[in-house]
């Protein structure tokens, strides 16, 4: 891929990554969300799905680069894909905190508009015990929050100046946590669904394939090195 194409492809990737968000906004504006029986449930699944999808896409960059020397500069898109994964993970978490938890967002919004900002805190006080209870008791929520915290750490250390400050080696070591985050995301999905539901299977298989590709690559490299050195 010629380097001069990169800016236009980047614009394209931004556009594609923003499509799910645009769809959400459009569904809200058109009233389609209101016709849906349980939009809160739908938004939760929608944002969760796109988080995992983008996370897997991020993880697919390295194996894809290795397919052909000319795909080398795919790495230029990896950070933005990862940051979009974090963006949707944050939307997913916000859906849980501000819609799923019972937080009455419509009341809060109309309260704020009417000049009573205190309602933001009042509503929060009302749902906080439920959220705390979830955090203490439910392992699928624990593993989900864990994955989000990892993504937060990766997003915070993603700017180039942080990389320079940390040094490439330490930075790469920290960023291998992306595997843990993706695996945690899959576990979060499996622990959520009812027994017998196999919806998380395609994502899990994709993750397994991406991890296997890495294992195969490093095995090949080790073998080649040993041949070269021996």
């Amino acid at each position: 891929m010629p380097t001069r194409w990169i800016p236009s492809i980047k614009a394209l990737v931004h556009g594609v990554c923003l499509l799910p968000l645009l769809k959400l906004i459009e569904m809200y504006r058109s009233g389609a969300l209101g016709l849906m029986a349980d939009p809160v449930n739908w938004i939760t699944h929608f944002t969760g799905y796109w988080t995992l999808f983008l996370l897997l896409t991020t993880l697919a960059v390295t194996p894809a680069r290795r397919l052909h020397p000319r795909l080398g500069n795919l790495v230029r898109f990896r950070r933005m894909l990862g940051l979009y994964a974090f963006f949707y993970a944050t939307l997913h978490l916000s859906t849980y905190l501000f819609l799923f938890s019972g937080y009455d967002l419509p009341t809060v919004l109309s309260g704020v508009r009417a000049g009573h900002p205190g309602v933001v805190v009042d509503e929060w006080k009302a749902v906080w015990p439920t959220i705390l209870d979830d955090l203490k008791k439910r392992r699928f929520i624990q593993v989900g929050i864990f994955a989000w915290v990892l993504l937060l750490a990766l997003a915070a250390t993603s700017p180039a100046f942080v990389l320079r400050w940390m040094g490439g080696k330490a930075w790469r070591r920290v960023h291998t946590l992306v595997y843990v985050a993706a695996a945690s995301g899959c576990v979060h999905y499996w622990w959520l669904v009812k027994k017998g539901v196999r919806a998380p299977l395609p994502m899990t298989l994709a993750l397994a394939a991406l991890l296997l590709a890495r294992v195969a690559w490093s095995a090949r490299k080790r073998w080649r090195n040993s041949v070269a050195n021996g």
Partner: peptide, 17 residues
């Protein structure tokens, strides 16, 4: 085991239950 049963989302004609 995975959620509280103390509350429910009431599905009626409003946009957000």
């Amino acid at each position: 085991p995975r959620w509280s049963q103390a509350h429910e989302r009431r599905i009626d004609s409003s946009t957000f239950p």
